[in-house]
Amino acid sequence: MPISQQIPPHIGLHTATVEYNRQLQTSIYLLSLLNTSLAESAKPGQFITIKMGETLSPLLRRPFSIFSASIVEGMAPRVEILYKVVGPVTGLMSHLKAGDRISVLGPLGNPYPGDFQRPLLIAGGTGIAGLHFLAQRLIADKIKPTILFGVRSKDELIPLPALANADLRLACEDGAAGFCGDVVTLAKKYLDSHFDGVYVCGPKAMLNALHPFLPPNLPCFVSLEETMACGVGACRGCARLLADGSYASVCREGPVFKWKDLKW
């Protein structure tokens, strides 16, 4: 069963102003968007869709997990998204400058549920984005999460200053930092210990590799990525096969799913 069929009440079509577009690595950027409604309503696990350019190609909006949302007195309400330049849309995004205005739809989808005291967060690549937001909120609630963050090489390592108070463990496949190897191998060392809940986000190959090692009795939530068109469950384009043989829309019934509800 989907976690929630309810669309959050705050979603909408916004025009957001770029506050900054910081290059964190060769092809990884942190984009800050100023918009009060988005910043106030965004919850960890949710996403926004962005339309780049006025031309017909690239055409569709693209979904991005929310990396952080903050409303701090004396500062403009902002949401941040983390993105890697992989195609024409993210290529255009890399040229965004402070003051540019873009069309944003959201926040969309269901947030990470759960009320765990000892959560384990497992992220692969830019899958860190939504889990970073979750970790921020957990830390604010006086819960210290353990975060396993895996990257292929040092070109994908990014600063995460907001997670200074978390137990952050890096896995780098080229041995540049932290554990030398992939994040699934690192996760195997942790999954049999004392955690009471797990949150995962990363590429499909990582999720499939992790699947055999998840203890069946440990509550686990996963956030999925999929090509989307509408973002609200109207087109049924972003289908994911469930354990019961039916399909769920990643945008509407997800992007966060109970691990055991999915067909692996």
């Binding site: 690239p58 090509t227 989307m228 049924r236 289908a239 096969l241």
Partner: peptide
């Protein structure tokens, strides 16, 4: 139930 994914490509 619909077709197996992927169902969309731009």
């Amino acid at each position: 139930v619909g077709n197996p994914p992927p169902r969309l490509i731009e």
